[in-house]
Each structure stands twice: as C-alpha cells, then as structure tokens.
Amino acid sequence: MEDIERQIECWRRSLPASLAERPDVIDELEGHLRDELARLVAGGVAADEAWAKAVERLGTPDALAAEFAKVPPARWLPGTVVSAVFLVAGLVGGLIASRVWRGQDGILATHILTVTWGYLAALAAGALAVWAVAEGAYRGDGRREMEAFRRTAGGLAWASLSMTAVGVVLGAVWASGRLGRAWDWDPREVGGLGVLLSAGVSVVLVRLNARAGKAAAIAGSTAAVLAWFVPPLLETGGASGIGLGVVLGAVVGGQLVVMALALAHPRAWGMADLA
C-alpha cells in the first residue's frame, strides 16, 4: 500500500502544469484512480498491475489537460454584476468629468478621476468579498465560485492599485506646482496612500489564499471609505459632522464585522484552504 501512495505521488507530479495548478481537479482524478484501483484489486488483479491499468484507462495527462482547458471558466453572477457596475460607473464618471472639467486644470482633473476610479475599484472588490463571505457562510464555498471571486476581485484590486497610483502621483505633481510642495501628509494624501497600500496587499493575498483575499479586499474598501469621507468630515465639523461621523462609523464597523467573519467563520474559509 505504501508503494501505491508513492505511485500516486509520482502520478500527481507527472501531470502537466495546467493541471498541476488546479488541485481540486487532481484530487478528483486521484479519487477516481483510487476507486478503480480498489475495484480491480478486489477482482483479484495485483496492485501494481491494477495501478497501471487504472492510470491507462484514465487517459494520458496531456489529453486530459487539453480537455480541461476547453472547459469555460465558472460564471459567478455577483462577479459579473459588480464588474459591470464598476465599468459603467467608471465610464459615466469619466464622461461627466471630461465635461465638467473642460478647459480646467488637466492634471487636477485627471488626478480626481483616477483616484475616484481607484477608490471605486477598491469598494467594488470589497462589496464582492462581503458577498462571497455571506454566500460562503450560507451554503459553504464552492471551488468554482471561489476561483471566480479570486479572478474578479484580483482584477479589481489591480485596477484599484494602478488607478490610485496614477492618481497619487498626479496629486503630488499638481500640489508641487500649485502649492509649492509635493507631499504634506494631509488627510487626503494619507488616505490615498492607505488605499494604495491596501490594494497592493489585496493583489497579493487574493492570489495566495481566498480567505485572506476576502479579508484584504474588505480592508481595502474600508481604506477607500475612510480616505474618501474622513477629510470632508474633518473639514465639516459641528452637528452635520457628527451625523456624517456616525454614518461613517456604522459603515466601517459593518465592514470590520464582515472582515472578522471572513477570517473566522470556518465555512467561509472555503475548501480551497482546508484541503
């Protein structure tokens, strides 16, 4: 039996790269091989011979990989909806901005537009993660939904990182020309830096691990909410400032709760990470 375990290990390692990066598929095929092996051995075939037969019947790794490559990626409705809303909002925002700021300071206008896109992308990735956590807690995570989440949230985190980076740099360029300094650690600048950093962390974590990716995406959206609304809150002050502060606190509190759930709820961890 030890021999068989070694052969299974060899077989797993012999698979082409396109299959090797899909452990769920390999686990499923391995399960099949084990079932077939058990059937043949029960029928009186020697273990070694049974293994060779089972592997042969399964088909060549290259042929299998080619067939799996043809399977279309999973559709995950929330991912499609959130991406579509983000793209439409970005386009409409861009059109409106180009009309509003026509003839005005181009650098400032582009800075505002790219930062808005970057923050929106962070919010969209966070919304997607909240949805994924809720769905996972409700019915357990499906592998394919998880893959779809990682693909979509990864793309949004990338968009957030690149757009915010351009926006922050343009902001610094504008500030150095207009205000005589590029960077002054004011709340807006700190906010932009926070979104930038959290987007970078999200890009990495979403790729590494679905559970950490969800938490990072939610943290990224919290950074965007704070970056967006804390500076005006500080400027407002007074009674309306308190009202805004309460709303902001509630939103951020909610995000933190879901983030904790993403990290702690065992069913929201997903099979991907338990395997």
């Binding site: 598929v25 095929l29 019947r57 399964l58 088909g59 299998l64 399977v71 999973a74 559709r75």
Partner: peptide, 15 residues
C-alpha cells in the same frame, strides 16, 4: 477513456 468524463462534468457545471 475514464478521465474524459470529468471535463464533461465540469463543463455541465460551468453551464
């Protein structure tokens, strides 16, 4: 070919 069942199952799931 046994293994060919699985891509079909995955395709049915994707659909």
């Amino acid at each position: 070919t046994d293994g060919m069942l699985y891509p079909v199952l995955h395709r049915l799931e994707a659909n």
